[in-house]
């Protein structure tokens, strides 16, 4: 059984149909990529999974439990962490406060302190800047902070929304390396990316979204060689 199962998910913004019945599944330990153009519904899908948006119809099932109507703050406790798009960090708090807030749903103090160290190991630059106000970090550092924060809730699935957006090519590679190491630690990753080439390179499977529908799916290694994907998303 899949860890996370999405079935016939429909989401509306007012009268606009953002998702027109999409279905996919995420298995434990996988990296899954959702790719597609602007407005395809990638972010909407993630927001609906993590409870920030409510679905019109369809279901989201985590470990056999229906979480379609569960509020966002409870979903975090159930093991899904969200790295929101555009580096949504807490601008006026320190880096350390940001990281600690990631563990908001947890009560085990000692383990939290240990996990802060783990995040520092993954992102050494955050340790150097731990007392700094988060809003003064560079774009790449902010993205790392958002990722580190999400890991603090000890998630089983991390959903990432455009982690490479607006970053320099070197940083993009760095971010993707980190996603790989997160996966190596046993965390499942659901990735939304515009950078289809990089995303497909590190994923196991991928789904291609187009105006609220899944038009193509399969192994990432197959999709990367698919003619239509190449033409539409890889610019070749």
């Amino acid at each position: 059984m899949a860890m996370l199962e999405i079935k016939d998910l429909c989401v509306n913004y007012g009268v606009i149909k953002a998702l027109k019945g999409i279905s996919f599944e995420v298995n434990e330990g996988e990296v899954i990529a959702l790719i597609g153009a602007n407005g395809a519904g990638k972010t909407t899908t993630l927001h609906t999974i993590t409870g920030l948006l409510s679905a019109k119809s369809g279901s989201i099932v985590l470990d056999g439990k229906d979480i379609t109507r569960t509020p966002a703050h409870k979903i975090v406790k159930m093991g899904i962490a969200h790295v929101p798009e555009g580096r949504r960090i807490f601008q006026n708090l320190t880096v350390l406060d940001n990281i600690r807030l990631g563990a908001f749903t947890r009560k085990d103090k000692d383990a939290i302190a240990e996990d802060v160290e783990k995040v520092y190991k993954l992102f050494p630059r955050l340790e150097e800047r731990k007392t700094q106000i988060a809003g003064t970090l560079s774009g790449g550092e902010q993205q790392m902070l958002a990722m580190g924060r999400a890991l603090m809730s000890k998630p089983r699935i991390v959903v990432m929304d455009e982690p490479s957006m607006g970053l320099s090519p070197i940083l993009v590679s760095e971010i993707f390396d980190i996603i790989e190491s997160i996966r190596k630690q046993g965390t499942t990753v659901l990735l939304v990316e515009q950078n289809a080439k990089k995303a497909l390179a590190i994923s196991d499977r991928a789904y291609v979204l187009e105006t609220g529908k899944i038009v193509l799916s399969g192994k990432a290694s197959d999709l990367i060689n698919d003619e239509s994907v190449k033409k539409a998303y890889l610019g070749e």
Partner: peptide, 24 residues
């Protein structure tokens, strides 16, 4: 306090606060 930091995180970014599990 923990509560205070949660409240400030809502001020700084509502969506991010929700996504780390804060009941807004």
């Amino acid at each position: 306090s923990r509560t205070g930091r949660a409240v400030m995180s809502i001020r700084d970014n509502r969506i991010a606060a929700e996504s780390v599990g804060i009941n807004i």
